[in-house]
């Protein structure tokens, strides 16, 4: 099902992928919190998994997903309520990407610093 759509199509696909990603994390998070019924020691043991460097890198991915999903959602809301913005939809997407990068760089640095010892 290949179609050479524009930025609108790709942002829509990313919106879906990040949305599902965040949902999967949420289910995982509900599950790990629920494991408190096994007792404090077991819970701590399981939660310690989040300290593994790989998990921290994945958390950066989680933050990126939430951030993209939120920014893209705002872009769609703006276009849906102020339909004249449809003329600038590509520029709005590029502005969204710029906001994403500006926020992601310091956040990724701060989140990964403890793991990589920066």
């Amino acid at each position: 099902m290949w179609y050479r759509g524009g930025v609108g199509q790709w942002s829509w696909i990313l919106h879906r992928v990040t949305g599902v990603g965040v949902l999967v994390f949420l289910c995982l998070h509900i599950l790990d919190t629920f494991l408190i019924i096994l007792g404090p020691e077991q819970y701590n043991h399981i939660i310690a998994l989040y300290r593994v460097p790989l998990f921290r890198v994945m958390e950066v991915g989680l933050f990126a997903s939430v951030l993209f999903h939120a920014l893209n959602g705002v872009r769609i809301i703006l276009i849906d309520f102020w339909v004249d913005l449809t003329r600038f939809q590509r520029r709005l997407f590029y502005a969204e990407v710029a906001c994403f990068v500006v926020v992601m760089i310091p956040v990724a640095y701060l989140m990964l610093r403890p793991v990589f010892g920066w």
Partner: peptide, 9 residues
């Protein structure tokens, strides 16, 4: 409609 813009393009 999910405001994808493929139609406009």
């Amino acid at each position: 409609c999910r405001t994808i813009f493929n139609c406009t393009e």
